[in-house]
């Protein structure tokens, strides 16, 4: 007899997942939750050793199968090949999570604008191109989810991070259009907008306080949004309220703020 076994509903969890940027803190947390539900998972990332360590970990945590693919998303020309390999690993994908990106130093970019191109490339052009390669396949498959991590930074341009915000905001517009396109094929396009998450990407920032979230909480929000076929998810939820206020601030007032 088993007294209770709630919280585990394998039917609603995608059985084939591909995670692009599998070493990001949020990606690892999502992959662990998927593994616990017995999913088959493709991990794609640049650091082969870290991917291999993660693959072993996921197998112990319950993943049915894990495939490792080495890939550098900064080389946009290779994303088509990466998608091809990820797609064929399990003959199709139920959930594709695009989780890579870099959080640039705004002041450094303003001082050396030439570096902006590489930043925009990795945070906007690359995920957009990769998602396009995925889109045609999902369109034919007529099911599945393309989930992309953008950021609350994309909602309104602010002096402290408008370059990163431009990339993420551009990605949000792209996903909006892609969602429109894939609606007819019943493919879900999920725009994930996290706030401050305690991962390696934010290691250099002072942490702590109520606005910071652990990656596992964000992962839980992402999988719930996938289950509920949402279009946009703010995670944790309170960022929707915060950004609602930030975006509603009249410009004269907004310009006097310093965040």
């Amino acid at each position: 007899m088993t007294l209770t076994a709630p919280s585990r509903s394998p039917s609603s969890s995608p059985s084939r997942a591909a995670i692009f940027g599998a070493n990001s803190g949020i990606a690892v947390a999502v992959a662990r939750r998927l593994a616990a539900s017995g999913a088959r998972i493709v991990l794609i990332g640049r650091d082969g050793e870290a991917i291999a360590a993660s693959a072993r970990d996921l197998l112990v945590r319950g993943a049915a199968e894990v495939v490792e693919i080495a890939g550098d998303f900064a080389a946009i020309g290779t994303t088509g090949d990466i998608v091809e390999r990820a797609w064929t690993a399990f003959s199709g994908i139920d959930l594709a999570l695009i989780a890579y990106g870099s959080l640039p130093d705004q002041a450094a970019l303003e001082a050396a604008p030439d570096a902006v191109e590489a930043m925009l490339s990795l945070n906007l052009a690359s995920p957009a191109v990769l998602a396009l390669h995925l889109a045609s396949r999902f369109e034919t498959q007529r099911s599945g989810v393309i989930a992309v991590i953008t950021s609350v930074a994309g909602d309104r341009g602010r002096k402290s991070n408008y370059l990163y915000g431009a990339a993420k905001g551009g990605l949000q517009r792209f996903l909006e259009g892609l969602r429109h396109r894939l609606y007819a094929a019943r493919v879900q396009v999920l725009d994930i907008r996290p706030g401050f998450v305690a991962t390696r990407m934010t290691e250099h920032l002072p942490r702590g306080g109520p606005l910071w979230a652990e990656p596992d909480r964000v992962a839980a929000d992402i999988l719930r949004a996938v289950e509920r076929r949402r279009a946009v998810v703010y995670t944790p939820w309170f960022w929707r309220v915060i950004l609602g206020i930030v975006c509603a601030l009249p410009r004269p007032l907004f310009h006097r703020t310093s965040f």
């Binding site: 360590a53 993660s54 072993r56 112990v60 945590r61």
Partner: peptide, 15 residues
């Protein structure tokens, strides 16, 4: 925080 191996027959976990 990674598991390395688990043998479900013997119950030996490496992490």
């Amino acid at each position: 925080d990674r598991f390395i191996e688990f043998d479900r027959q013997t119950g030996i976990v490496t992490c």
